[in-house]
């Protein structure tokens, strides 16, 4: 019983204090699950971050599930995930209520109007970092032309072209298609004995 309470409390703290989303929450999670409670060691923690990069879903929820299962099985995963989303539920629902009620007040309109172009910029910069990760995965060395992943550029241009042309198409199909084509390519190259170029390590 104690372990579930600890999981709940620990992940509530993570949910409450991780502002900014994404990898901003990684150090906080580390301080809780590795340093404070010793639920996993550093190698496992790095593994779980790697897997989080490879799989969909927020890093904090992924960690909650993984740690929860390790420590307390499926109930542990449920408790940890619940703890992780509870603080944002309460805070965001309050904000949602305020937004519905006051969104037409001129000053609130002004604030939201000022934020809109900034949010477009934030989404754009998230796009740039994802693109950089696939097109030029090696940032640790000086720039070299052969470190550019040309295959990623071809994939990107094709996907972008399809998305611009087929406005009604669900983008998830483009993502699934890209994953499928990439898999087929990998299998063909593997059969031919050539390594798949630049899968970001």
């Amino acid at each position: 019983m104690m372990i579930y309470l600890e999981l709940l409390w620990s992940f509530m703290k993570i949910g409450l204090f991780s502002f900014g989303g994404g990898y901003a929450s990684v150090p906080l999670i580390q301080s809780q699950v590795v340093d404070l409670y010793h639920w996993m060691d550093m190698t496992e923690f790095v593994d779980i971050i790697t897997i989080s990069q490879m799989t969909p879903g927020p890093v904090a929820i992924n960690c909650a599930t993984f740690v929860g299962i390790r420590v307390g099985g499926i109930p542990g995963a449920l408790v940890a995930t619940f703890g992780c989303v509870l603080p944002s539920c309460i805070i965001v629902l309050t904000l949602a209520f305020i937004y519905q009620k006051y969104r037409n007040v001129p000053v609130i309109q002004g604030i939201l109007g000022g934020l809109r172009p900034a949010i477009v910029a934030l989404i754009a910069s998230a796009g740039v970092s994802i693109l950089q990760l696939s097109i030029y995965p090696r940032t640790d060395e000086a720039f070299r032309l052969q470190n550019i992943d040309w295959l990623a550029i071809v994939f990107f241009v094709l996907c972008f072209f399809i998305l611009r042309k087929a406005k009604k198409l669900n983008p998830i199909f483009v993502m699934l298609g890209a994953g499928g084509v990439s898999l087929v390519l990998y299998l063909i190259l593997k059969a031919a004995g050539i390594p798949f170029p630049f899968i970001s390590a």
């Binding site: 593994d47 790697t50 897997i51 490879m54 799989t55 477009v120 989404i123 754009a124 998230a126 796009g127 994802i130 693109l131 990760l133 696939s134 990623a152 994939f155 990107f156 996907c159 972008f160 998305l163 611009r164 983008p171 483009v174 993502m175 699934l176 298609g177 890209a178 994953g179 499928g180 084509v181 990439s182 898999l183 390519l185 990998y186 299998l187 593997k190 798949f196 899968i199 970001s200």
Partner: peptide, 28 residues
């Protein structure tokens, strides 16, 4: 973590995500 096939699929999807964001950012 070590499966090449899994990595290949995820690699393709990651590039496509970049394209999805580029598309919507252009419209926005």
């Amino acid at each position: 973590k070590n499966s090449g096939a899994v990595r290949a699929v995820l690699w393709g999807m990651q590039v496509a995500v970049g394209a999805v964001i580029a598309d919507i950012v252009l419209s926005m």
